[in-house]
Design a protein around this nucleic acid. Sequence first.
DNA 1: GGTGATTCTTTTCCGTCGTCAATGAAAGAA
DNA 2: TTCTTTCATTGACGACGGAAAAGAATCACC
Lengths: 394, 394
Amino acid sequence: MRSTPRTEAFPAHTPAAAQIFTTVLSHGPLTRSDMAGRAGLSAAAVTKAVRPLIEAGYLVEEAGDEARPALGRPANSVRVDGGRALFIGVKVTGDEIIALLTDLCCRIRVARHVPLRGREPQPVLTAVADLVQELLAEADGFGVQVQGIGVAVSGDVDRAAGEVRLSPFLEWRDLPLGELVEMTTGLPVTVDNDVRALTVAEQWFGAGVGLSDFAVVTVGAGIGCGLVVHGKVVSGAHGVAGEIGHVVIDPTGPLCHCGNRGCAEAIAADPAIVAAVRDATGLPVADAAQAVELARRGDPGAREVYARAGDAIGRAIATVANLMGPERVIISGEGLAAYDLFAEQIRDAFAASAFGTAARCDLLTRPLAFDEWARGAAATAIQSFIGGPPHGTG
Amino acid sequence: MRSTPRTEAFPAHTPAAAQIFTTVLSHGPLTRSDMAGRAGLSAAAVTKAVRPLIEAGYLVEEAGDEARPALGRPANSVRVDGGRALFIGVKVTGDEIIALLTDLCCRIRVARHVPLRGREPQPVLTAVADLVQELLAEADGFGVQVQGIGVAVSGDVDRAAGEVRLSPFLEWRDLPLGELVEMTTGLPVTVDNDVRALTVAEQWFGAGVGLSDFAVVTVGAGIGCGLVVHGKVVSGAHGVAGEIGHVVIDPTGPLCHCGNRGCAEAIAADPAIVAAVRDATGLPVADAAQAVELARRGDPGAREVYARAGDAIGRAIATVANLMGPERVIISGEGLAAYDLFAEQIRDAFAASAFGTAARCDLLTRPLAFDEWARGAAATAIQSFIGGPPHGTG
DNA sequence: GGTGATTCTTTTCCGTCGTCAATGAAAGAA
DNA sequence: TTCTTTCATTGACGACGGAAAAGAATCACC
């Protein structure tokens, strides 16, 4: 039997140190004067912040011999030692659990997933605990301690309290998930909404690095949106934000489960597309993969459905851009498998609906690996571990 | 001839002092321990921050003899001395200029407005300069120095640079308005977008006090929206945000000047309403006042137009609520004169379209006096004068 | 009218953090 | 070798805010 995992504290005792560290984490190897510039600190402050982090092994000096400016003392780059700590990210969906072991740089070391039968908290918790134990065993193999667990769940999640307030997919309500997982694992647990977790991953390790205002739009079983404004992920006063799926695109459109007609989700989410393709073609299309295939083979009905979906997504994104003026929108999600089928419509609809300079916003697609959601969860765990102030603009 | 105005620096040398001051400014008279609690500082820090502000006359001790808890040393309340400094707020619209003299608490002392003939920068600047001179003369009468001028303009404004990048109403482009007004007045000038200015006024002096996430929606000649997220007004990466007017409500609706169909502005802004009422009734309705009157007298066509407008506004607000989860939405603007005609539809449409806990968001109407826009401009001037970090959550 | 209890406020001391300016270090250039 | 350039470190310093203790103002009680 394994002894209870021990976690250690991250040695960033000052806000500046945490800021320096996240800067290096996001922007790869940096020289000390680079850090000073990006973080808006003096060189002296950087030296003082970096030393304990190097001593603790979280940062390492790098023999940065690339493209020196040939004059003056060469700069010493510093980078994060990803192998210094491990984290576990868990994504719980309605029918499976995905769990990852990642390093401090959020690089995936091991991935596991198990199908899920029941949705009661009890069996789900047991399955999560089992997966976590497996990954902890793997971590032992690396000889590195796991410092935290992130759990991502769709729905209304209170990260600070570690509680799932309402998850329609899982039919959970007011579940102190963080506490429960903490009890079975003995590790610090961060619970967050899945889209927000993905947004954190993009902000720290992805296409949102260095941006203070951007959005992540996910297309798949549902349509979601994570927002970063003023350098921080938006949670909303009541814990819910980014509900782009229920932006009404066409008041005469199909009925949505929320009760309205023509929500983006009722037009462009996978179930809606499958249903619409079935309607249009009369064929017994069972899932999104079949719908995509049909469209790729040129079925006009199916193609039309995808065109409409792309239009809806583009207009939903334009709505976000008009309201918040992000610098970039990152489009992601399982639904991107069909991107070739609606890319044009998304861009056209966005261009037509974005108003004024909002149209300057940069649209970026990012194919979503199946384990990306769990990676988001790991990112929240890393965030909690490092603590300190939220990611700045640098 | 008056001597060149001299402005003084605000004596809040530490961020904590500025925070304390804005807390008192927004939350009225406060005892020192109240401030400490709200600002998250120690009592000692409050004492140290308050003293220089009292010495400089910006704060004054108040004989707060109301409802003492009967035990212990009575608390001394402190409040802002509004009369300590004056500010000028100017709102430039397509056909008139409104200028206000306000005190430090943004209370209006004197209001002036003049019609505007040309829209060229030159005559507008002259008119602004004349109005400002008049108000400076009034300020002399109070024996108090004017410490800054705020100018609010619709369109794309870069506050930091003091430039109007694009104002469709005024047909201005890349105009260094701040610099120009500063030259003619010798006072520090803050230039900002009109809706954002109004939002600042609500955040510091209105219904947004103490909220870290809220929205201001204005209904009138256009439909606008100011957003506060994480305690700061959202400006967007490209200077534009809150373009709620071009959220598409009904893709089959009337053509909007932006080129799309069924934008909120194309349904619910004054010109759209007037046009629709004309269409519906066949009467030569000239302006919003006549349309309102017609509807109030029970004309079914006009009533229907207002009902549709209310529905559009409610859905636009729900879109904002779904995306950013504000704690409150403040509805304002000249269009509120017709509030009785569409209040019900706004609330119904909002309730129907707001998803999940976003519906908990609190809808508040705030009748807009004609000079409220200029007051927003004054608020931005006050904000610039005080400097320091943006308004916190407290 | 003391004396004590209670609460608000101020004072004093102290630790922390980050900047400034000077110094040291590592290269290439002259 | 010596100078120049750039990066990095050091130590002195000052600003800021917190902890704790003292002071102040009131009421309750004897």
